[in-house]
Design a protein around this nucleic acid. Sequence first.
DNA 1: TCATCCGGAA
DNA 2: TTCCGGATGA
Lengths: 268, 268
Amino acid sequence: MFEAKISQGSVLKKLVEALKELVTEGNIDVSPSGMSLQAMDSSHVCLVSLVLRDDGFDHFRCDRNMPMGIHFANFSKILKCAGNDDAITLKAEDNADQLTLMFESSNQDRISDFDLKLMSIESEHLGIPDQDYSAEIKMPASEYQRIVRDLTSIGDTVLISATKEGIKFSTSGDVGTANVTLRHNTTSEKQEEHTIIDLKEPVALTFALRYLKNFSNATALAPQVKLSLTKDLPIVVEYQVGELGNIRFYLAPKIDDEDNMGEDEAQS
Amino acid sequence: MFEAKISQGSVLKKLVEALKELVTEGNIDVSPSGMSLQAMDSSHVCLVSLVLRDDGFDHFRCDRNMPMGIHFANFSKILKCAGNDDAITLKAEDNADQLTLMFESSNQDRISDFDLKLMSIESEHLGIPDQDYSAEIKMPASEYQRIVRDLTSIGDTVLISATKEGIKFSTSGDVGTANVTLRHNTTSEKQEEHTIIDLKEPVALTFALRYLKNFSNATALAPQVKLSLTKDLPIVVEYQVGELGNIRFYLAPKIDDEDNMGEDEAQS
DNA sequence: TCATCCGGAA
DNA sequence: TTCCGGATGA
């Protein structure tokens, strides 16, 4: 059987909130070493990877590796029924077709349990090579959120350039053009306000803002976000979720010379 | 060329917020003595006048008079990308078709620049005579905002009567009727809480509340607002923006016999 | 603590 | 498309 308890239920709630707009359904794989998820977003443009380590839970037991096919909108519905201070326990029998969620309020005077129906999902296994990146940028998650929100109001795509000067986000649209530049900065006493640019070689890539913005739904999970860039490879947007694990978003760059030709979903 | 820097970027943000609902587009005229704008609102009912003096800026340079045709919704979009503590610099080459905005965060670790496309706008030149008014009322800007908000929930038009008793705002609607009276009051130690009524002769005029309410979008710009009234002339609603300049709204009175059932102020 | 903005639901 | 609730910034 599988059983995992997390006393900070709000973390689980935020994780699923961050995912569910992107990923309709996917397999959460449980194993003795923890839980993980790899899934493409519904338009098969970007990829989400979630890793939660067993020892990040208050209690974790898994006798057998098992994929649990989750419909994230439904998962989210149930998690909305948990209070933010509730402890959440996940439970499933081996090969069960349902996942049981137990919510215990902090003062124990309220206990709820919900069964989520599991689905059988073809698991596309997606090797994600561990990469050396040309540039790694750590910045406040709120800053990242602010920048992509601002730029989204101006244009659809963003050119991210990392140089020794700093990291620059550029876009343009009907209104005009925009450039936001961040410089390496570790002057604040609060580590979470630092901007750290680790540059092996300059790199400049273009991405669809829509997805970068979506990734920022994970802002509440971590004080900082890490962007990793390498020429012709997907950007990685990573949030470290305390000691529990991390959530990573991967988005392939636009190829410059076919950039803005309408290849987006043509719906009419 | 033209270049103007204001370290209190929030002031510029608030100014444009105050304008943009009323004025879709208009020419901001820059000259060696500062910046100014005169524009009718989109329904051509009221008029907005903005004056910002050169010496109110941290830095101001203008080699040549020049109108800059601004689309205020777009201007606002870009200004929303500035932090409230940012310093904002405006720049344009002579006869340029774009205005560059530079935002610098207070700790300098973030620099953004935006180009706003300029438009070519027919400038209607609007002489506004300096007037002697029958009544001038200064009151807390928040008080003005409160009164027009309250009255808007009761009726569509307001009769403003200034007498030696004070200033009275009256409206009526399906709900019933409402009268709010303010008296001259300088007892508070805080000057911004004073209500000062400077009356040359009694006057009573009727206005569309909708516009008066819109003017109160400028509330954040100044602690006090000044209303100036003269029979058969537009009301002037003026906010003094620190040492920088002022923003004034003009609205013509309704002619009594086609709107309100004439009570007081009979058309003898 | 309040007002504004953004996302989700009807 | 419009209204309501939640989240965020002042």
